[in-house]
Structures are given as C-alpha cells and as structure tokens.
C-alpha cells in the first residue's frame, strides 16, 4: 500500500508502524512533506506501533517545521499509539506544542 494512494492532504498510514517497516514509512513520508504544504496523517485504530514510529513522527515534525510546512495527526493519539506514548515517557513533561500535536490539546498544530 502506497501512501500516495490516499486523498490529498490526509494520508492513511499502513497498519505496520514498527521498526520492521519504518524505513518504507520514512521514505514515503519524506515525499509527502516535500510535495504538500500541509500534511495530515491518519492512523488506523488496529495498527501496530512501536517506539520507532514515535521517533519518526518527531523527526517529521522537525523536518516539516524547518521547511515552513505543517504536519498533523488526523485524530488525537489513541489506541496502540497512545499506549506507546505513555509507556515510552513521551507524555511526561510534554510541552504545549507536543500536547497539541499528539493529543490535540489546545487545537491542532
């Protein structure tokens, strides 16, 4: 499944968001950010997520920010993604920007 198959601006990620598939996800996300001024990422509720995806999204935020572009999640983190955020210590000491990005607290970034 290619990220480019999805409708413009909102991109549904494949269900495997673990280290085994993270290289492909990175490649396609780079292309999306390069191609669009604003990118919204949708994640399926039953996806497999590990810390590599959280790290990838943080790297994507840096990349998009330095290029003057926007990136956001279609929905606040929930399910497996929220579980990884909690277990990995990302929710502790989260800045307002982080909370806005991951949890949509205070409006979407």
């Amino acid at each position: 499944m290619s990220l480019a198959d999805f409708k413009e601006d909102c991109f549904q990620l494949p269900p495997n968001l673990t280290v085994r598939a993270i290289g492909t996800v990175r490649q396609e996300m780079l292309q999306l950010i390069d191609k669009h001024k604003s990118t919204t990422i949708a994640i399926t509720g039953d996806c497999q997520v590990d810390i590599s995806f959280v790290q990838l999204m943080e790297a994507a935020r840096i990349y998009a920010g330095s290029a003057g572009k926007n990136i956001a999640l279609a929905e606040p983190a929930n399910g497996p993604l929220l579980d990884v955020l909690k277990r990995s210590g990302f929710l502790e000491g989260m800045s307002a920007d982080d909370a806005k990005f991951w949890l949509h607290q205070g409006g979407i970034q």
Partner: peptide
Amino acid sequence: CTIVADRSAIPSLDLLSPTDLHISWNV
C-alpha cells in the same frame, strides 16, 4: 516511577536513520 523521554537527539526526518534509536530516558 517517573519516566521522561529525552528527544533532543532526534534528527530531522531527512537525516534520520529510522531503525536507529535516538531517544534516551531520564527516570
């Protein structure tokens, strides 16, 4: 336990080797 992920070493997406781990932790 209070666990805080340290993300300061995560590079930009274009420089990221996605299977490498750039996060450390303060506990």
